[in-house]
Amino acid sequence: MVGRRFKPGKADRLLDPKRREIISPEQVMSLLDLQATDHVADLGAGNGYLTLPFAGAVEKVYAVDIEKQMLDLLRKRALEQSGNNIDYVVSDLESINLPDQVADKAIAAFVLHEVPDLTKAFKEFKRILKPGQMFLSLEWEAIEMDMGPPLHERISSEEMMRIFEENGLKPEVHHFHEAVYGVLAKV
């Protein structure tokens, strides 16, 4: 089920205006109930589709990505938009280079289908989040469409709910679009 890693050379696709029709940063911020004092971990931040809007709304954003090139693109965009409250962290999600209980909220957007060991990743999500705080996973529903990964790499919302439960979380699913869902849980 592990999908191929997204190639930084295709980073412009992540900023395609069509994505806003499917899921907007504002919808995500509302679901996470972001507060001005929050510290948010954007896990798989890429070139900042969510990171930059978060940075405009919260005290601190930890932009975590396995690809340094993606974080370099994000840093360039942040400088153009005066985003100076972002920490850039090169890391995989199975051993996140952040301290314990550093974040009030965490999100992994369109990246969990690329993670080889989700059990390790979920332990890390719990470790970096403060107790009782929220973790949100956004993924592509397991249906055919032009955007997103191939169908065989997608994780259905039902399967993601099961993964959350297997990792000790009580999830709730939110459908933003027929092709995109979010699974949210307190840790």
Rank of each mutant, 00 (worst) to 15 (best):
V89I: 15
E159W: 01
D104F: 08
A41V: 05
K123R: 12
R154F: 03
L112E: 06
E114I: 01
R127L: 04
W140M: 09
K130E: 03
S82H: 14
V111D: 11
L118F: 04
E166N: 12
E159R: 13
L43E: 11
G132Q: 05
N84A: 09
E67L: 12
L79H: 09
E80A: 15
S91H: 09
P99L: 08
A142R: 14
A36L: 05
T51M: 11
G168I: 00
F110S: 06
V90A: 14
A63Q: 06
T119I: 02
D65C: 13
E94W: 06
P99Q: 09
A109R: 02
P150K: 06
F122I: 05
A109L: 08
H39V: 15
E153T: 01
H113M: 08
P149W: 02
H152Q: 06
H39A: 14
D92S: 15
S157L: 05
D72M: 04
V90S: 14
W140F: 15
Q35L: 12
W140P: 04
Y49A: 09
K123S: 10
Q81A: 12
V64Q: 07
K60P: 00
L93F: 03
P150T: 01
T119D: 15
L138G: 05
A78S: 13
E94D: 04
M161I: 14
D38L: 04
V102P: 01
V64R: 07
R162Q: 12
K130M: 08
T37M: 10
